Simulated scan of single mutants.
Amino acid sequence: MKIGSKTISRILGGIAVIPLGLGAAVALAANTLDLSPAQPARIHAEKSADAIKALPAGFRFAKEGTLTIGIHPWIPPISTYATDAKTIVGFDADLAQLVSDSLGRKLELVPVAWADWPLALASGKFDAVISNVTVTEERKAKFDFSSYRKDQLGFYAKSDSRIASIREAKDIAGLRIITDPGTNQEKILLEWDKQNIAQGLKPIAVQYYDDDAVKALAIQSGRADAVFSVNAVQAYQAAKEGKTKLVGTVSGGWPRTAEVAITTRKGSGLADALTTSLNDLIKNGKYNQVLDKWNLGSEAIHKSATNPPGLPKT
């Protein structure tokens, strides 16, 4: 699917994403970030004695001396294919490298379709999944989690917009906002609007577009004031094009906080070691370096947790 054509919305990891074909994803990223297969600037980490010590006794990895990670390449900056159309790059791939380094193991990334990762993980095809998986209470019944990033939605306005901040419901009163139908962001937007109207504030005008080019034109021409959608994707586009700016973020699980996490087999014991690894990476700064590399600094967490509270069952 090429940029400017109609897009199809689907829910991935508890948030809405816009899938792009390989060619479109590569074209979108080629001028801003290194998508080469070699990844010469990939950040590495030292071994973590604490993380290695936290590995469960007798734990059997999928492959000797290797940390095998399942990953679904879907869109930059989270994960996508390099210019060779087979090497996986992006934030999740870089985080997987840091974790494998800290455990003193080689990294092997195994591409997997989103619908297939639960069964593949349960069967032992790989040791863990790093693929933008949001922690939910339903998933916690079957898997363990080590949190590593906020699940965030973002408000983006034209770079020279007078809108400086959107943090709560009253900030959107009277605005014209583009969002994605049938998603968490639409639900949040409509709930905020309902609250505003009940308090006597001006209603919003919600706009929906199937075409990314038309959406961008609406913002740049002044027909819409802001876009409310997946933060990671919009942050990447803002960095690439320089035409929009972040004016506010909201948890993808609002009013609850939602987090994205490394996913492991339930009861395997690997989650505690991965959580220890992540907290070491947070402390030594490597974690934030990788976030900043992919323009995702606003989604940083201060501490990783094993099996944090997840979004409730619906």
Results as ranks from 00 to 15, higher is better:
Ser229Lys: 03
Thr7Lys: 02
Asp144Ile: 10
Lys286Gln: 13
Lys313Val: 15
Ser102Gln: 06
Asn288His: 12
Lys202Ala: 09
Pro118Leu: 10
Asn307Asp: 14
Ala51Cys: 11
Trp192Glu: 00
Gly21Tyr: 11
Glu259Val: 10
Ala300Phe: 04
Gln199Ser: 11
Asn184Ile: 11
His44Phe: 08
Ala57Pro: 07
Glu168Asn: 07
Ser79Cys: 09
Ser251Tyr: 05
Gly310Tyr: 10
Asp211Pro: 03
Val135His: 01
Ile43Ala: 08
Ser36Asn: 08
Asp171Thr: 08
Thr276Ser: 04
Asn284Tyr: 08
Ala224Val: 02
Thr136Gly: 05
Ala57Thr: 15
Tyr209Leu: 05
Asn196Ala: 01
Tyr148Gln: 05
Asp280Gly: 09
Arg162Gly: 15
Ser9Asp: 08
Ala198Gln: 13
Ile172Asp: 00
Ala38Gln: 15
Glu138Gln: 14
Gln97Arg: 13
Phe228His: 01
Tyr208Asp: 03
Leu291Ser: 07
Thr263Ser: 06
Pro40His: 11
Ile219His: 00
Ile301Pro: 01
Ala120Leu: 12
Leu296Phe: 07
Asp180His: 01
Ala232His: 01
Lys240Val: 12
Glu108Ile: 09
Gly182Ala: 13
Leu246Cys: 03
Gln185Ser: 10
Tyr156Gln: 01
Asp160Leu: 06
Val99Pro: 00
Pro308His: 15
Asn231Ile: 01
Pro37Val: 07
Glu108Tyr: 04
Val135Asp: 02
Asp225Glu: 08
Gly252Val: 06
Asp193Cys: 04
Ala29Trp: 03
Ala224Gly: 01
Ile172Thr: 02
Ala62Lys: 08
Glu108Cys: 05
Ala113Tyr: 14
Lys86Asn: 13
Lys187Trp: 02
Pro111Trp: 13
Ser277Leu: 08
Ala164Trp: 04
Asp193Thr: 03
Ala232Phe: 01
Val89Ala: 06
Gly242Cys: 12
Trp117Cys: 08
His302Thr: 15
Val260Ile: 15
Ile3Gly: 05
Lys283Val: 15
Gly4Ala: 12
Val133Ser: 01
Ala226Met: 06
Ala164Ser: 14
Leu95Lys: 03
Gly310Arg: 11
Arg265Trp: 14
Tyr236Ile: 06
Val227Pro: 00
Ala235Arg: 01
Ser48Gly: 10
Val250Gln: 00
Asn196Gln: 08
Gly174Leu: 10
Asn279Asp: 14
Leu278Asp: 06
Ala239Asp: 12
Ser221Ile: 11
Ala93Gln: 07
Ser146Gly: 14
Asn31Asp: 15
Val247Thr: 04
Gln39Lys: 11
Ala141Trp: 07
Gln152Tyr: 03
Ala30Cys: 05
Asp160Met: 10
Val290Leu: 03
Gly70Lys: 06
Ile282Phe: 10
Thr87His: 02
Asn279Glu: 13
Ile75Ser: 09
Leu35Val: 14
Ile219Lys: 00
Ala258Gln: 07
Leu217Gly: 09
Asn288Leu: 11
Leu270Ser: 12
Pro181Asn: 12
Ala198Trp: 10
Trp117Glu: 03
Ala232Pro: 00
Gln97Ser: 10
Trp74Tyr: 15
Lys140Ala: 15
Ile8Val: 13
Tyr236Trp: 11
Asp127Cys: 07
